[in-house]
Design a protein around this nucleic acid. Structure first.
Lengths: 331, 331
DNA sequence: ACTTTCTGATAAAACCTTTTAGCTTCTATA
DNA sequence: TATAGAAGCTAAAAGGTTTTATCAGAAAGT
């Protein structure tokens, strides 16, 4: 019907079709300025009929708000950052904000490249996420003029960060085992140079007292296996429950226990950490485990960056979000 | 040094500092028009000193190329689409193109929402990816004026799609087992209503002939386990090799075989499909498996969408990219 | 000396939207 | 009746960039 059909409708098309000026059309559509209710409805109807949608580039150029935010992650699409990304995206889409995803693969050059691209695109804010909470963000990030949120990562002193509450997660794990009547609980976990591992171990020790035993290793299934070999090849008291630092470790532990004919959870109760379903649902018996609620963490980070980008002020510091427990068969 | 310091430098700042007009500055920076080498260098130097970077919104508004593309995926950040996303991103970042990630979680409402947002942002193209190759894309997608690429998903007849070559993947798996001297090879795989499962099964049958046996089930570890129970609880000839439809199935198969005291790979060789390292590296023995090269598939999709967005023409149809084999201990 | 060609630079238009300030017309108040 | 205020609308500017058309001057050809 119109003269040219190769492009999108602009607000100029709407204005012409409605017989009003561009300004009136804009005011009618946005509810700004003073507009007669009748013309307002008319403009809206016509815009609808024409399938008009405003050009986000033009709008962003003028309003200085691009309604896009960037998510910078240090890994290549791993299992920790992606549930967070899903959570962030869920929040943003409801507010008409889109998400640029930038995986830096721990490469500073790539981080710089992505960061520059985000700034060129005038993003309203950046969420930095990492695979471990004690990882330094790219140095360029800390001196930006736009808001930055740190999720599962350390920000500078005056920044806003969200972490899972590792201490609380460890406590509910141990308390669950104690409620089951277990008294000889040990803790097999990952690398000691991970802050999260140390926090959990400390919380564990606080609850079990001097009877505790912590074994640090790596985050692999294999380590869970060999840790059990080590425990049972030595003499001494054996545990009646094991709190593992990850689901993968727990899987190794469970397999090794079963190889020795030890019944789970009757002889030894096992609890994991992560609720990584592909692992925790497939162990035999299925794994009772701690869930860090990463998607919820993403929600919170998304809400926070939205707030900051609107100019709201947020309390700086690390907010720790509670973990949940998922009870399956192993404890 | 400058008058206002709260925003970014604009090309106007550069022009003023260099004592030239805005047009000259633009021409110098982009190598367009006619510019004296001397002034060109000067402008570039000053732009560099000032840290000038062009506003992507303004540029996109004018040139009609936003240098952003959207990736629409039907799942919530799963293990299949994410390696592809990494591959896509790797290609794009080198061409100064950014990636909007949109997870629709199989919800048509969400798909529409994301799609509209992408169009509002004037993306130069869209890559649609799915969790299975035989999944219909959102109907709105097929009538867009901007280029669309289908990766790991079905496009309409005149579109460009990339799939892993499931038939070839199945063939190299079976041939590997045959090279090892195995002759009683069976195939335990996932749901028959998945096109990929049928393609692989057909390729398998073609190579093993009438001696073949295919068991369809679901894609879980548990199914691998119970399939073995079924095979060994019945009388009849037993396999000397098993080609599994996924690494998870393979893990169930291996565990079940070991429970029965069957040695892998001596008595029965096992080969998986996916090379999902968290599974394939952790089985005992580690799993020999087929790799769909999803990252490479992402590379190809990224290159394709770049080409299309530049106006290049691409041969429509499904391009099948070869799978690789990763030999570990199980076969 | 006069035209042509080329070089280097620039003003202005364009992209699409929002917003400010101003202009009529009408109603209510003094 | 004059005037203040409000209601409804619009022209124009602004945002930052690219691109087109134009212009002045220099070099080159006749």
């Amino acid at each position: 019907m119109n003269d040219s059909d190769h492009g999108r409708r602009t607000i100029r098309d709407v204005a012409k079709a409605a017989g009003v000026s561009i300004s009136t059309a804009s005011n009618a559509l946005n509810g700004t300025g003073r507009t007669n209710a009748e013309t307002r409805e008319k403009v809206k109807r016509i815009a609808d009929e024409l399938g008009f949608r405003p050009n986000a580039l033009a709008r962003g150029l003028l309003t200085k708000r691009s309604h896009a935010i960037g998510m910078l992650t240090n890994d290549t699409y791993g299992r920790l950052t992606l549930p967070m990304a899903a959570g962030v995206s869920e929040i943003l889409v409801d507010h008409g904000v889109s998400l640029f995803l930038c995986a830096t693969n721990n490469d500073p050059r790539l981080a710089k490249l992505h960061l520059d691209a985000l700034l060129d695109r005038q993003v309203d804010g950046i969420i930095f996420t990492a695979t471990r909470i004690d990882l330094e963000p790219p140095p360029e990030l800390v001196k930006l003029r736009i808001p930055v949120i740190y999720a599962f990562a350390q920000g500078p002193a005056d920044s806003v960060s969200f972490h899972p509450d590792d201490a609380q997660g460890a406590r509910i794990a141990v308390q669950h085992l104690q409620t089951l009547g277990r008294s000889r609980i040990m803790h097999i976990t990952g690398e000691q140079n991970y802050l999260a591992a140390r926090i959990r171990a400390d919380a564990y020790r606080e609850l079990v007292g001097s009877s505790g035993q912590v074994m640090f290793g790596d985050w692999s299934e294999e380590w869970g296996h060999s840790a059990i070999d080590e425990v049972y090849s030595k003499s001494g008291p054996k545990p009646d429950a094991i709190f593992c630092g990850s689901d993968e470790i727990a899987r190794g532990v469970i397999d090794a226990l079963r190889d020795r004919g030890i019944s789970i959870p009757n002889d030894v109760a096992v609890i994991g950490f992560d609720n990584w379903e592909v692992v925790s649902k497939q162990t035999r018996p299925p794994l009772t485990t701690i869930d860090m609620e990463l998607k919820e963490l993403g929600h919170r980070a998304g809400l926070a960056i939205l707030g900051l980008s609107r100019g709201e002020k947020l309390e700086p510091g690390v907010e720790r979000l509670p973990c949940g427990i998922v009870v399956r068969g192993s404890a």
